[in-house]
Design a binder for these strands. Structure first.
Lengths: 160, 160
DNA sequence: AAAGAAATGTCAGCTTTGTTGACACAATTC
DNA sequence: GAATTGTGTCAACAAAGCTGACATTTCTTT
């Protein structure tokens, strides 16, 4: 029962019972547990390479959108450039990401994964992808489309 | 287009295309964006009370399972007791959570939210719950059951 | 051409939230 | 009585976020 919640209905006060009617605690918690375990998947690999979850996100998105600029990345991750600079520099120095001066706008730095970066991104994504595939298979046919639409609806719309 | 990804198919190398076949990058990213924006909802309230997301999680789970012990909470959150001690102490000192010596095992500390704690937990959960309800409504009838099963399947099973 | 704005990099310092290791104390169990 | 368990606490450290300030290069606007 580690990491789960017990049935606690016998403890419920009237206030709690009323909240239960209007607030979707169940999905809120399931999201927490699902995401916690989902992000835990790549930890073993990250530890070996000496990187953290911040590095994971950077390698992932640069690998997914080759040629994206620093500004693009900041916008995707929603962190400050000082925060990004730290992990990005480490990834460049370690040879997982390289920068190319923008061909039109020479102020920009287009980001690309190296061969090593691609391998790392793939290795990190693999256990997560397997977890998703297993979960979708267990949930039943048609689950992927529903889940995908739900997740799209959960995130903020384009005009952030 | 802030925080989103462009169509980058024209940049794809053969390696990337092969990965696309076997790795579910799409759901991986949607989970990231959905969870990022979902956890951003309570930020305004947290800033006002001077608490962080760690406090949020503690108040939430204690409110959901009144009488849970410190060990239960550690098991749920999967953090160390030293890390928990910091935020728990602040929540107790601020009057949002109170401790009661265990009736059977007097070493245990049963945790309860105060009236203020319940109000805080509810206020924090409200925008998240609204986001979920809206997303489910847009996704269509029957979405809740599918999403719920998917999330249950995504988390690690009971024997962590 | 000069002035301004934009994209990026960097320095310095701070905060939150996680970690390890060590130790203390009271209460329970063997 | 000894060992174990549940909890608290001290100290130090690490990851990853933040703000503010300032420099450089390059583009855009006037």
């Amino acid at each position: 029962m580690a990491g789960q919640l017990r049935d606690n209905s016998q403890y419920m006060t009237d206030v709690t019972r009323k909240e239960e009617d209007t607030i979707d605690f169940e999905i809120i918690e399931l999201l927490f547990f699902a995401y916690r375990d989902f992000t835990g998947d790549p930890d073993a690999i990250l530890e070996k390479s000496g990187f953290g979850r911040a590095h994971h996100r950077v390698v992932h998105f640069v690998n997914r959108e080759p040629g994206m600029t620093v500004a693009d990345l900041l916008d995707t991750l929603k962190i400050t450039k000082q925060s990004l600079a730290r992990v990005l520099k480490q990834l460049i120095d370690s040879g997982y990401i390289r920068q190319v001066t923008g061909p039109e706008d020479r102020r920009q730095r287009m980001l690309y994964t190296t061969k090593e970066g691609q391998a790392l991104a793939r290795a990190l994504a693999e256990p997560q992808s397997r977890r998703i595939a297993d979960a979708l298979a267990k949930t039943g046919p048609g689950a992927r489309e529903i889940v995908k639409r739900f997740l799209v609806n959960m995130k903020n719309s384009a005009a952030d």
